[in-house]
Amino acid sequence: MESCAPECEFIYKPKELVVDSDLEDVSVVIGNIRPTAAAAAPALQWIQLNTAGADEYVAARRAADHWQICCARGAYSIAVSEHMIGMLFDMIRHFGEYHRKQAEHIWEANTHIVSIEGSTVLVLGLGDIGSSFAHKIKGLGAATVIGVRRSCGPKPDCVDEVCTTDELDSVLGRADFVAMVLPGGEETRGIMDERRLRMMKKGSYLVNVGRGNAVDSAALKKVLSEGHLAGVGLDVTDPEPLPADDPLWDMENVFITPHVAGQFYLDETFERIVRIAGRNLRHWTSGEPLENVVGLY
């Protein structure tokens, strides 16, 4: 990292130990310090986050906009999209049930399965991670991949149709699988409410790896208990951590992982974050525009 900006002085400190006085003369922060600390840093020009999401930092920047936010877009696509594929296969092939039966030494089949081949898949959130998932699911034989994004834009090659979130209701009922990779914010909070969950095709599957509050948790439990959805895979929940007494834990058609789709568990994720930060340091010292700048959405 230091080789990317040899003229700069680097200070290393665990983020939990950073106090406001540490930031008085700091121009750049690499890492996810407290958003309020970043907003209060008088000399801060930009912060490089190690996350793809930046919700709390966007809110903090609205109060003090002298600094820019750069996210780690592009770092998590491999890990998260593969996690999504794994969740789907776990549900449609009953792997969790077979693990339980193996532990009890029971040789017994679950006879009904479905296939990704020939299916319709709706990807809600067509950013870096969503596009990576769309590419993988198309490669597995999905007949139609529908991408949903906030605004119109170019259609990726791996996507057959693109629409905006305003058009979500018109395509939701077509999907055999709905994959959610949405960012945070008021625009996406509760976007999958009871009405939309019921609009999903009966017997379809839902995977959410974006933001837990994008799905109305109470409505989800109600719809699941009525058997409308065949399965739901959640790497994010509302709230987090999910309370031990939450009914979602015990629902047979729910697969929960504790917000681990991203993180640094895959070495390549960490390496990509370092490369993104290094490139931005070189851009900054050369007076060039930064990459992955987050707007005040």
Score class of each variant (00 low, 15 high):
E7T: 13
L17G: 00
V19W: 03
D20A: 15
L23E: 07
L23A: 10
D25P: 00
D25I: 06
N32C: 14
A37W: 08
A43H: 14
Q45I: 02
Q48C: 11
A52R: 10
R62H: 13
A64I: 03
H66C: 07
S81G: 11
H83Y: 12
M84K: 03
G86H: 11
F89L: 15
A103S: 13
A103F: 01
E104G: 06
W107K: 08
I113Y: 09
G118T: 02
S119R: 04
I129F: 03
G130R: 00
L140G: 06
A142S: 15
I146F: 07
V148H: 02
E161M: 12
E161D: 09
C163G: 02
D166F: 04
A179S: 15
G185Q: 09
G190M: 09
G190V: 10
N213G: 00
V215L: 14
A218F: 04
A218V: 13
K221Y: 00
A230C: 10
G233M: 10
D235Y: 03
D235A: 07
E240W: 01
L242E: 07
P247I: 07
V254K: 06
F255V: 13
P258M: 10
P258F: 06
F264Y: 15
R272V: 00
A277W: 15
A277K: 12
L281I: 11
N292Q: 11
